[in-house]
Amino acid sequence: MVARRGFGHPEVYAAVFALSFAVARFAPWLVAGLGCPFRALTGVPCATCGMTRAFVRLAHGEVAAAALASPFGALLAAGAWLFAAAAAVRLALGLPWPRVSAGAARRLALLGVLALLANWAFLVVADRP
């Protein structure tokens, strides 16, 4: 007998990621933005400055503009939306999620932190609002 897997954490994340695309694509007020409080206080962009603009621009198909707004934000958006699409395909085909070892998860987390730090360095050097 095959065990049926319910709606779990990966599916919740996939739904949130799919919703983030819909909001980035169809919520015009996101383009204006509220500004970064960290930047207002220090004059230096924060590590996540430009991510909303990157999500919105990528959702509109403006890949180069998204990468210029925040390279990590553009990669994060693309990865999240690909994950949502893969989750939908996996669910439709009834396939299981691949197993990720604890060591691989730690390496991926470290890679994410390093990518965020590299993004911050890019934003500080580029220094544009």
Rank of each mutant, 00 (worst) to 15 (best):
98 P>W: 08
106 R>Q: 13
10 P>D: 03
120 W>F: 01
82 L>E: 07
70 S>V: 00
91 L>E: 14
4 R>M: 15
95 L>C: 12
12 V>A: 12
82 L>C: 15
28 P>T: 11
20 S>M: 01
96 P>T: 08
91 L>T: 15
51 M>Q: 01
52 T>E: 08
100 V>L: 14
68 L>P: 02
118 A>C: 10
80 A>Q: 11
25 R>H: 11
8 G>T: 13
100 V>M: 12
63 V>E: 03
99 R>L: 12
22 A>R: 04
108 L>N: 05
1 M>D: 14
57 R>S: 07
116 L>S: 08
35 G>D: 04
28 P>L: 09
70 S>L: 00
70 S>D: 02
66 A>W: 01
67 A>L: 13
125 V>W: 07
54 A>P: 00
100 V>A: 13
12 V>S: 05
61 G>I: 06
92 A>K: 13
97 W>G: 11
54 A>H: 01
76 L>V: 05
61 G>M: 06
76 L>N: 04
47 A>M: 11
126 A>E: 10
102 A>R: 15
26 F>Q: 10
28 P>N: 06
86 A>T: 10
86 A>Q: 14
87 A>P: 04
121 A>H: 11
95 L>E: 15
110 L>N: 03
76 L>F: 07
27 A>Y: 15
29 W>L: 11
4 R>C: 11
75 L>R: 04
47 A>H: 07
116 L>T: 12
11 E>K: 05
53 R>H: 13
2 V>P: 15
128 R>W: 15
74 A>T: 03
49 C>Q: 02
1 M>Y: 14
23 V>G: 01
19 L>E: 06
75 L>T: 04
29 W>I: 12
122 F>E: 02
9 H>A: 15
41 L>C: 05
60 H>P: 03
93 L>V: 13
22 A>D: 10
14 A>H: 02
70 S>P: 01
2 V>I: 14
51 M>P: 02
15 A>I: 10
91 L>M: 13
63 V>P: 07
25 R>D: 12
12 V>E: 02
63 V>F: 11
53 R>F: 08
101 S>V: 10
75 L>I: 03
109 A>G: 00
79 G>Y: 06
21 F>S: 03
46 C>G: 01
98 P>Q: 08
68 L>V: 08
73 G>L: 00
84 A>S: 04
14 A>N: 03
72 F>M: 08
83 F>T: 06
92 A>G: 15
112 G>V: 03
123 L>S: 06
39 R>C: 10
126 A>D: 12
56 V>Q: 07
55 F>N: 00
94 G>R: 07
59 A>D: 05
42 T>C: 09
14 A>W: 02
17 F>I: 00
128 R>G: 10
67 A>T: 14
22 A>I: 06
104 A>M: 14
41 L>G: 05
15 A>F: 12
52 T>H: 03
54 A>T: 00
101 S>N: 09
109 A>Q: 06
118 A>Q: 09
94 G>I: 06
108 L>H: 06
21 F>E: 02
58 L>N: 03
